[in-house]
Nucleic acid binder design. Sequence first.
DNA 1: CCCGAGTGTTGACACTGTCAACATAACCCG
DNA 2: CGGGTTATGTTGACAGTGTCAACACTCGGG
Lengths: 209, 209
Amino acid sequence: MRDNKSKYHHGDLRAALIGEAVDMIADGGVESLTMRDISGRLGVSRAAPYRHFPKKSDLLVAVAASGFEGLRDRMQAMDAAAPRSSVERVRRLGEEYVRFAIENPAQYRLMYGKEALSRQDLPVLREAANAIFDHLVLVIRAHQKSGGIKRQDPRMMAFVAWSSVHGLASLIIEGQILTEIDVDELIRQTTRTLLDGMRVHRTCSTRKS
Amino acid sequence: MRDNKSKYHHGDLRAALIGEAVDMIADGGVESLTMRDISGRLGVSRAAPYRHFPKKSDLLVAVAASGFEGLRDRMQAMDAAAPRSSVERVRRLGEEYVRFAIENPAQYRLMYGKEALSRQDLPVLREAANAIFDHLVLVIRAHQKSGGIKRQDPRMMAFVAWSSVHGLASLIIEGQILTEIDVDELIRQTTRTLLDGMRVHRTCSTRKS
DNA sequence: CCCGAGTGTTGACACTGTCAACATAACCCG
DNA sequence: CGGGTTATGTTGACAGTGTCAACACTCGGG
């Protein structure tokens, strides 16, 4: 029932829609995705997608959700393979985050911009984003316990860390980084500065490096 | 010729378009701005705007450019009024940056997202963004000279700083910050961590605060 | 005074998201 | 096996959109 000539029923249109949408968005951006176009590519009529996604924005939400899954998997894999030094854990987590955004710019934009998304379905995405954030909080809390670290609210510090990597990722994928800057070095510098900033607070003797 | 009953010629349609577009985007977002709607609001026919902006995206670029002007003015004013302590200068600059984004979320999104903008006219915006960035580089370079600071490439460090505040601003205006977090405190914490991270590098004795 | 350039208008077109009505296939229960 | 219920896909239609071409008006300078 899934791959022979009987073409009236597609077999698994819902999954095919999400996959094709990811591809179309990857090259061409969100605005290059049109209901009629994606229907045609899947050899189906223009209204067929509406049996699975009542609104176009619902399809976009699904694409964003799949992006969150991919990001979560990558970060968990990275964290599992990371050395036990808490500093390295935080640093690698941040770098992997930025790398994901660089490799999937349009999808990343969709995940964190409410521009193209309907206001209501954000809870689904919110939950997915929270899962990743909670993991970050855990890692940062562990890092704080390792000593020599500011005793700030780990949630607060997690937001600070998230701001750094999210901002860096955004600037890079929006093309705001001057070409003369070495992006890899910039990523390293960002995580380094962040970690140094988390280490001490006002009490460090000012001494030139 | 500008305000009496002779209504065939609007007087200064171009400026009126930008102003109205700013308002419409401010409440309703970019997608609530439609060529036909804005024409109606200004008592003009739907094709009239095209005498001043060949494409809708050109109007959006103008809106973004006006946003950059506003941001630049605010940051320059803040910097002029700031105390001479270089730490305070950097901190206040960052906080003012985030505040601008919070107060003009849709416009800020337009300024830094290439989503709704045509690819070609970015040079204009690039220049406006660069002006602000260059100012930041200056302030950071001055801060570095004040002592006790990493001797990193100031351009690089400016990007790190920019990433922090841009990321924080983005997360806030996209509604990603949990409600239980005090946003003002988060802003302060972000700039504080950033400044601490810029101060020293690997050479600071690890001591609990 | 007139005419050309600047500006505004009208009609039209292709394209979009979306819905209602209909058609077909799959599935389930007797 | 058969018939009906449900899930899925199709077609036609509509309103709204950006944008262009052809036309109309008006103002400033020769």
